[in-house]
Computed example of a mutant assay.
Amino acid sequence: MNPRIAFVAAPVLTFTYGVIRILDGLDGSRGPGLAWTTGHLAFIGALVFFAMTFHEIRRLAGRGRLATGLVAAGYIGITTLIAQFTIDLVVGFRSADHAAMDVMFDQVQSVPGVQQVVYGFGPLLFFVAQIGLVLQLAIQRRVKAWMPVLVIADVLVPFVEKDLMPLGAACLLISFLALARVSRASRPAGGRHRVDESAVPAAA
């Protein structure tokens, strides 16, 4: 798949999840139901595309040890987030109402290690990798300095207020569109990878 598609799809699907999440909560509770299921499927799709963007950013960064380590951490984070959202989907399918969901979530999260790995430390690796990879490109002067600022904004906004997730995703889309241009400029017309040690032009 063309990596430029992933740079667009990841933030767009994240934005979609954020909007659906807001709509799902208008009645005072979230899930179960169509909005819960659709939103979670959208974010799982976003995570798949994020994995593709990590792979491409590693290439742009030169495939060094730091970039490789960050991507590995990112993949672990993506895996735990997919596990988390899959649990959410299963709980939603098996619950008649929100109260039943709360009971089932308590049962799942009481399993040793699940709360710490799937809902705690694991997902943080995804955000650390996302910031670290773009910062590395900025330090290498392959992207402009404003790009990591937008990525950091996307990461931090949901921790402040989850309903602001669409705003964060919009910031991410702006930065990822610039990354898509850098990715395209780094490849010759034939589609084969250009040697990575040369300077990839920074996004305007």
Rank of each mutant, 00 (worst) to 15 (best):
K162L: 07
V108E: 01
Q109L: 12
P158I: 06
G113W: 08
V143E: 03
V103Q: 13
A129F: 00
G92I: 04
P112V: 11
Q107P: 00
V157Q: 08
V157H: 04
D97S: 13
L137N: 04
Q130F: 09
Q130D: 05
Q115F: 10
M101P: 08
P112Y: 09
A100T: 10
P123K: 10
D97G: 02
F121D: 02
V143W: 02
V143L: 08
W146E: 10
V117P: 00
W146A: 11
V117C: 00
P158E: 06
D154L: 07
A99D: 11
V128C: 01
Q115R: 13
Q140E: 14
Q136G: 12
P123Y: 10
H98P: 03
L137Q: 04
V118S: 09
G122P: 06
G113S: 08
P148Q: 10
G132F: 00
Q109E: 10
R142D: 09
S95M: 08
G122Q: 09
F159D: 02
D97V: 06
V117Y: 06
A153F: 11
L124M: 07
H98K: 13
L133M: 14
V91H: 03
P148D: 03
M165T: 14
F127L: 06
D106I: 00
I131C: 04
F127R: 00
M104K: 10
W146H: 06
R94A: 14
G113P: 07
V108Q: 01
P148A: 06
L135I: 03
G113M: 08
V118Q: 07
A153E: 10
